[in-house]
């Protein structure tokens, strides 16, 4: 068991040992996961951070290279060195990291993402609270689930039980002189009000590509992209140049299948209509990723539900798809 004060000291020590520390801090926009200098600023009582771990492993804007047309050069830019401690993200976000790992590190590897993951230690804070949008347990995870975490901290009163779940976690705890706790039970996990039954969903998606249900479930979607931006597993990106310059950078930016321009070519648009784009989003998460890496690309963090300005509720959509004959 470790007290909050001792925990903050340990994070301070990690900072002194050259870890860049990312942790939740309260901001005007809500609690954000950001790189911090002073562990005293860490927020402990949020449900979820507004942003996700993508900001650490797959940043929303990333310079890939610098070009100089006149000098005939294109030099790669890499800023993926250095150790990173991610402290205090929630189990759903840690689980999302596992999903991104399966997609981006494999036969074909995103070398920048992989390099960042290689140097990342995940010290996750298990949940004491949940809100109406949380549904991680329906996706096979839970408020105290260790998936993706190197170290999981389970709340017990005002203190934390320390559990190591990977060799990297063990090594990290040793480095900071902490010991994992065995045989201690933490506080019970919070009850989730929201549950969605997804049994049979994959079988439905295998067959319903042309079903009219895609029109009704996407009716309220305005293709704003808020759901993708907030999603911990959405990882699609665009590559663009800083334009009109003979010297500049090539950038990688987040992008989403919600936008019509995503697949639009000069002479052809294979994915026509909002329903088709919404279908792609659901299919990608609940069928295509299952087909390719045998994982559902949703952890039930509920950010898309909280973020949608028009009340599109993923759980309701999934239920409609499962119930559709």
């Amino acid at each position: 068991m470790i007290s909050k004060e001792r925990l903050l000291d340990a994070i301070r020590e990690a900072g002194a040992k050259d870890y860049a520390v990312f942790a939740p801090v309260a901001k005007d926009a809500g609690v954000m996961l950001e790189e911090i200098d002073d562990p005293a600023s860490i927020n402990f009582d949020h449900v979820l951070t507004v942003n996700t771990l993508k900001d650490v492993g797959l940043p929303r804007v990333e310079a890939l290279a610098e070009f100089d047309r006149d000098a005939r050069t294109m030099e790669a830019i890499r800023d993926d060195d250095g150790k990173v401690l991610v402290f205090g993200s929630r189990p759903c976000d840690a689980a999302a990291q596992k999903i991104l790992d399966a997609i981006l590190i494999g036969e074909i590897t995103d070398s920048r993402y992989a390099a960042r993951r290689e140097r990342m230690v995940m010290m996750t804070l298990a949940c004491s609270t949940a809100d109406d949008a949380c549904f991680c347990s329906s996706m096979g995870y839970g408020p105290h689930d260790p998936t993706g975490s190197d170290v999981l901290l389970l709340p017990k009163g005002t203190e934390f039980i320390v559990r190591s779940h990977t060799p990297r976690g063990e090594e990290f705890l040793r480095e900071l002189g902490m010991t994992p706790d065995a045989d201690v039970e933490g506080d019970p996990p919070p009850e989730l009000k929201r549950k969605v039954e997804t049994g049979g969903l994959k079988e439905k998606l295998d067959k319903n590509f042309d079903d009219p249900i895609w029109n009704s479930v996407s009716e309220n979607c305005v293709s704003c992209g808020a759901c993708f931006y907030m999603c911990p597993t959405c990882h699609c990106f665009d590559v663009i140049d800083e334009s009109g310059l003979s010297r500049g950078r090539r950038l990688r930016l987040w992008d989403t299948c919600s936008f019509a321009g995503f697949t639009k070519m000069a002479s052809h648009q294979p994915r026509v209509g909002r329903h088709a784009r919404y279908r792609q989003r659901i299919m990608h998460k609940f069928k295509y990723t299952v087909d390719n890496v045998n994982l559902v690309a949703c952890v039930g963090d509920g950010r898309c539900i909280r973020a949608c300005p028009y009340g599109v509720d993923l759980c309701e959509v999934l239920e409609a798809l499962v119930g559709n004959e």
Partner: peptide, 11 residues
Amino acid sequence: VGTCGRCNIGS
């Protein structure tokens, strides 16, 4: 290379 998520037809 299969990571930007843009060119899929089904899976």
